[in-house]
Computed example of a mutant assay.
Amino acid sequence: MAKMLGKDSTCSIARSLEAVGDTWTLLIIREAILTGATRFREFRDALGVAPNILTKRLEKIVADGLMERRTYQDPGERARDEYVLTESGRALSLVIAALADWGRTYRPHPDGTSPRFATEEGGAVARLGFATSDGTSAPPTKLVAQRTPDAQLAAS
Protein backbone atom coordinates (compact mmCIF):
# COMPACT_ATOMS: atom_id res chain seq x y z
CA MET A 1 0.00 0.00 0.00
CA ALA A 2 1.28 3.48 -0.89
CA LYS A 3 2.29 5.85 1.86
CA MET A 4 -0.48 8.30 2.76
CA LEU A 5 0.49 11.82 3.76
CA GLY A 6 -1.85 13.19 6.37
CA LYS A 7 -5.50 12.40 6.79
CA ASP A 8 -6.51 14.15 3.55
CA SER A 9 -4.77 12.07 0.90
CA THR A 10 -7.05 13.58 -1.75
CA CYS A 11 -5.28 16.95 -1.35
CA SER A 12 -3.30 17.80 -4.49
CA ILE A 13 -0.35 18.96 -2.38
CA ALA A 14 -0.22 15.65 -0.46
CA ARG A 15 -0.53 13.71 -3.74
CA SER A 16 2.32 15.74 -5.24
CA LEU A 17 4.54 15.26 -2.20
CA GLU A 18 4.10 11.49 -2.49
CA ALA A 19 6.01 11.78 -5.79
CA VAL A 20 8.44 14.67 -5.17
CA GLY A 21 8.56 15.20 -1.40
CA ASP A 22 12.04 13.74 -1.05
CA THR A 23 15.07 16.06 -1.25
CA TRP A 24 17.02 13.79 -3.61
CA THR A 25 14.06 13.50 -5.98
CA LEU A 26 13.83 17.25 -6.50
CA LEU A 27 17.60 17.56 -6.87
CA ILE A 28 17.65 14.80 -9.50
CA ILE A 29 14.83 16.55 -11.37
CA ARG A 30 16.71 19.86 -11.02
CA GLU A 31 19.82 18.35 -12.64
CA ALA A 32 17.76 16.90 -15.48
CA ILE A 33 16.04 20.25 -16.10
CA LEU A 34 19.04 22.56 -15.68
CA THR A 35 21.92 20.51 -17.08
CA GLY A 36 20.15 17.96 -19.25
CA ALA A 37 21.56 15.10 -17.13
CA THR A 38 20.19 11.70 -18.12
CA ARG A 39 22.82 9.23 -17.00
CA PHE A 40 23.36 7.67 -13.59
CA ARG A 41 26.98 8.85 -13.49
CA GLU A 42 25.94 12.44 -14.27
CA PHE A 43 23.46 12.51 -11.40
CA ARG A 44 25.88 10.80 -9.01
CA ASP A 45 28.75 13.15 -9.84
CA ALA A 46 26.65 16.34 -9.75
CA LEU A 47 24.87 15.51 -6.50
CA GLY A 48 27.41 13.44 -4.58
CA VAL A 49 24.63 11.03 -3.68
CA ALA A 50 25.40 7.44 -2.67
CA PRO A 51 24.77 4.99 -5.56
CA ASN A 52 22.27 2.90 -3.58
CA ILE A 53 20.19 5.98 -2.74
CA LEU A 54 20.36 7.24 -6.32
CA THR A 55 19.25 3.84 -7.64
CA LYS A 56 16.21 3.81 -5.33
CA ARG A 57 15.25 7.40 -6.16
CA LEU A 58 15.56 6.85 -9.92
CA GLU A 59 13.41 3.71 -9.66
CA LYS A 60 10.71 5.69 -7.81
CA ILE A 61 10.96 8.62 -10.23
CA VAL A 62 10.41 6.22 -13.13
CA ALA A 63 7.56 4.43 -11.31
CA ASP A 64 5.90 7.81 -10.63
CA GLY A 65 6.10 8.71 -14.33
CA LEU A 66 8.47 11.68 -13.95
CA MET A 67 11.18 10.04 -16.05
CA GLU A 68 11.36 7.12 -18.39
CA ARG A 69 14.22 4.67 -18.58
CA ARG A 70 15.83 4.19 -22.00
CA THR A 71 18.65 1.88 -22.93
CA TYR A 72 21.75 3.29 -24.64
CA GLN A 73 25.10 1.80 -25.54
CA ASP A 74 28.33 3.70 -26.11
CA PRO A 75 30.72 2.07 -28.62
CA GLY A 76 32.68 -0.72 -26.95
CA GLU A 77 30.64 -0.50 -23.75
CA ARG A 78 27.83 -2.57 -22.27
CA ALA A 79 24.24 -1.41 -22.58
CA ARG A 80 23.14 0.98 -19.81
CA ASP A 81 20.03 2.91 -18.88
CA GLU A 82 19.51 6.64 -19.09
CA TYR A 83 16.70 8.57 -17.46
CA VAL A 84 14.76 11.04 -19.58
CA LEU A 85 12.20 13.49 -18.25
CA THR A 86 8.59 12.88 -19.24
CA GLU A 87 6.10 15.67 -19.79
CA SER A 88 5.11 15.54 -16.12
CA GLY A 89 8.78 15.64 -15.11
CA ARG A 90 9.46 18.65 -17.34
CA ALA A 91 6.40 20.38 -15.89
CA LEU A 92 8.20 20.38 -12.53
CA SER A 93 10.26 23.27 -13.89
CA LEU A 94 7.53 25.46 -12.33
CA VAL A 95 8.19 23.90 -8.93
CA ILE A 96 11.96 24.20 -9.36
CA ALA A 97 11.57 27.86 -10.38
CA ALA A 98 9.29 28.60 -7.40
CA LEU A 99 11.67 26.93 -4.95
CA ALA A 100 14.61 28.83 -6.45
CA ASP A 101 12.76 32.13 -6.23
CA TRP A 102 11.78 31.47 -2.61
CA GLY A 103 15.31 30.38 -1.70
CA ARG A 104 16.87 33.42 -3.36
CA THR A 105 14.52 35.71 -1.46
CA TYR A 106 14.26 34.07 1.96
CA ARG A 107 17.44 31.96 2.15
CA PRO A 108 20.01 34.19 0.43
CA HIS A 109 23.61 33.07 0.12
CA PRO A 110 26.49 35.34 -0.93
CA ASP A 111 27.76 32.74 -3.43
CA GLY A 112 24.33 31.40 -4.36
CA THR A 113 23.24 30.38 -7.84
CA SER A 114 19.76 30.14 -9.27
CA PRO A 115 18.24 28.96 -12.52
CA ARG A 116 17.05 31.45 -15.08
CA PHE A 117 14.28 30.26 -17.35
CA ALA A 118 13.98 31.70 -20.85
CA THR A 119 12.10 30.84 -24.01
CA GLU A 120 13.85 28.49 -26.45
CA GLU A 121 13.12 30.85 -29.31
CA GLY A 122 14.37 34.37 -28.71
CA GLY A 123 15.64 33.80 -25.17
CA ALA A 124 13.10 36.06 -23.47
CA VAL A 125 13.44 35.63 -19.71
CA ALA A 126 10.34 34.13 -18.11
CA ARG A 127 9.20 35.47 -14.75
CA LEU A 128 7.39 33.36 -12.20
CA GLY A 129 4.27 34.72 -10.57
CA PHE A 130 0.56 34.63 -10.09
CA ALA A 131 -1.74 36.31 -12.57
CA THR A 132 -5.50 36.76 -12.49
CA SER A 133 -7.67 35.49 -15.33
CA ASP A 134 -7.40 38.90 -17.03
CA GLY A 135 -3.58 38.77 -16.89
CA THR A 136 -3.07 41.18 -14.00
CA SER A 137 -0.10 40.37 -11.79
CA ALA A 138 -1.11 39.28 -8.29
CA PRO A 139 1.57 39.29 -5.56
CA PRO A 140 1.48 36.23 -3.26
CA THR A 141 1.12 38.49 -0.19
CA LYS A 142 -2.20 39.76 -1.56
CA LEU A 143 -3.75 36.35 -2.23
CA VAL A 144 -5.99 34.12 -0.16
CA ALA A 145 -6.30 30.37 -0.70
CA GLN A 146 -9.13 27.96 -0.01
CA ARG A 147 -9.69 24.25 -0.56
CA THR A 148 -11.53 23.73 -3.81
CA PRO A 149 -12.47 20.47 -5.57
CA ASP A 150 -10.10 19.70 -8.47
CA ALA A 151 -13.06 19.29 -10.81
CA GLN A 152 -14.18 22.85 -10.05
CA LEU A 153 -10.70 24.24 -10.73
CA ALA A 154 -10.47 22.40 -14.04
CA ALA A 155 -13.76 23.95 -15.16
CA SER A 156 -12.70 27.52 -14.38
Rank of each mutant, 00 (worst) to 15 (best):
residue 9 S to W: 11
residue 11 C to N: 14
residue 12 S to F: 06
residue 13 I to E: 04
residue 14 A to L: 07
residue 15 R to T: 10
residue 15 R to M: 13
residue 16 S to K: 03
residue 18 E to K: 10
residue 19 A to P: 03
residue 19 A to W: 08
residue 21 G to F: 00
residue 21 G to V: 01
residue 22 D to M: 09
residue 22 D to F: 08
residue 22 D to Y: 08
residue 22 D to H: 10
residue 24 W to C: 09
residue 25 T to M: 12
residue 26 L to Y: 01
residue 27 L to R: 06
residue 27 L to A: 02
residue 29 I to V: 14
residue 31 E to G: 09
residue 33 I to C: 00
residue 33 I to K: 01
residue 34 L to I: 05
residue 34 L to T: 11
residue 35 T to V: 01
residue 36 G to A: 04
residue 38 T to Q: 12
residue 44 R to T: 03
residue 44 R to V: 01
residue 45 D to A: 13
residue 45 D to H: 08
residue 46 A to P: 04
residue 46 A to G: 05
residue 48 G to T: 04
residue 48 G to R: 01
residue 49 V to G: 06
residue 55 T to W: 09
residue 55 T to R: 15
residue 57 R to Q: 14
residue 57 R to P: 09
residue 57 R to S: 14
residue 59 E to F: 12
residue 59 E to Y: 12
residue 59 E to S: 15
residue 59 E to L: 14
residue 60 K to D: 12
residue 62 V to K: 12
residue 63 A to D: 14
residue 68 E to R: 15
residue 68 E to W: 11
residue 70 R to E: 14
residue 71 T to C: 05
residue 72 Y to H: 07
residue 74 D to K: 11
residue 75 P to K: 01
residue 75 P to R: 02
residue 75 P to L: 02
residue 77 E to S: 14
residue 77 E to A: 13
residue 78 R to Y: 05
residue 78 R to D: 10
residue 78 R to S: 10
residue 81 D to K: 02
residue 82 E to Y: 03
residue 83 Y to L: 04
residue 84 V to Y: 00
residue 85 L to P: 00
residue 86 T to F: 02
residue 86 T to I: 05
residue 87 E to N: 04
residue 87 E to K: 08
residue 87 E to L: 08
residue 87 E to Y: 07
residue 88 S to V: 01
residue 88 S to H: 00
residue 88 S to D: 02
residue 89 G to S: 06
residue 89 G to D: 06
residue 89 G to F: 04
residue 93 S to I: 11
residue 95 V to L: 13
